[in-house]
Simulated scan of single mutants.
Amino acid sequence: MDEHRIGLKPIRRSMWAPTGQPLTCPVEPGYEWLYVYAFVNPESGESLFWLIPVVNKQAYAAVMAAFAQKVGAGADHRVLVVQDGAGFHVPPDVGHPEGIQTVTLPPYSPELQPAERLWELTDVPIANRAFKSIKEVEAALSDRCVWLEGQPDLVTRHTLFHWWPLLAN
């Protein structure tokens, strides 16, 4: 599980340009933000995304509860969530939803987080583009996230590290 901040500030990526012609990219920087919360099972490629306007303890708790419900976590179905040590990854007073257990990665180790590799996939429709409103960004991202949820092979290729512990069949 990880979060990614997206906004009106452009995301730049390398791109091709015809020889001898200058490369131009539109820029209309703004400072409105949207956060992508993502969960991924690296082995199966299953992924779930939520687009939320804030990142804080309340949003984290709401997304974690929605995730638990979506995957059927409970007394008979335990789910292990690997996450970074962000300060808002603290469950509310009532704790995590039933069936959810978390493991926190060491500080400053994004290379260990499989969900961190999702961002290069989610950013495709918004890279090198300028948007006039955060609603336009949200529309582009929501379409992309829905599409990615149906692409488990692509997600696995990006998130399944060679050292990731696989489930015994």
Rank of each mutant, 00 (worst) to 15 (best):
M64T: 11
F49P: 02
L80D: 03
L48M: 15
V137E: 00
D123E: 15
L34Q: 00
N128E: 05
G30L: 01
G72Q: 07
A62F: 04
V155P: 01
Y60L: 00
S44R: 10
E28I: 08
M1H: 14
P165T: 10
D76R: 13
D93T: 12
L34I: 08
H4A: 14
A168I: 10
D84E: 12
V124C: 00
V155G: 00
L166K: 15
K9D: 12
A59Y: 06
D153Q: 14
K70F: 06
T19F: 11
L34A: 03
E149L: 01
Q113T: 09
L80P: 00
L105W: 05
T156F: 01
E111F: 10
R12S: 12
S142E: 14
L166E: 13
T156A: 07
R129S: 02
A73I: 02
K135N: 12
L8C: 06
I100F: 03
E28R: 15
P53N: 11
T104S: 10
V55Q: 15
R157L: 06
A59Q: 09
Y37F: 15
V63A: 00
E111R: 07
V82Y: 10
P10V: 03
P165R: 08
A139E: 13
F88M: 00
A75F: 09
F49H: 08
A127M: 09
Q83E: 14
D84G: 10
S44K: 10
L23H: 07
L48V: 14
Y108T: 07
W164K: 06
F39W: 11
D84H: 06
Y37P: 05
F161I: 00
A66W: 04
D153N: 12
K132P: 00
G95V: 02
P125D: 06
A130M: 06
D76E: 15
L23K: 12
T19Q: 14
A59T: 08
T104F: 08
L48C: 03
A65D: 11
G150K: 13
H4G: 08
L148C: 01
I126E: 02
G95C: 03
A38V: 02
A86Y: 09
W50V: 02
P29L: 07
E111S: 07
S142K: 14
M64Y: 07
T104M: 10
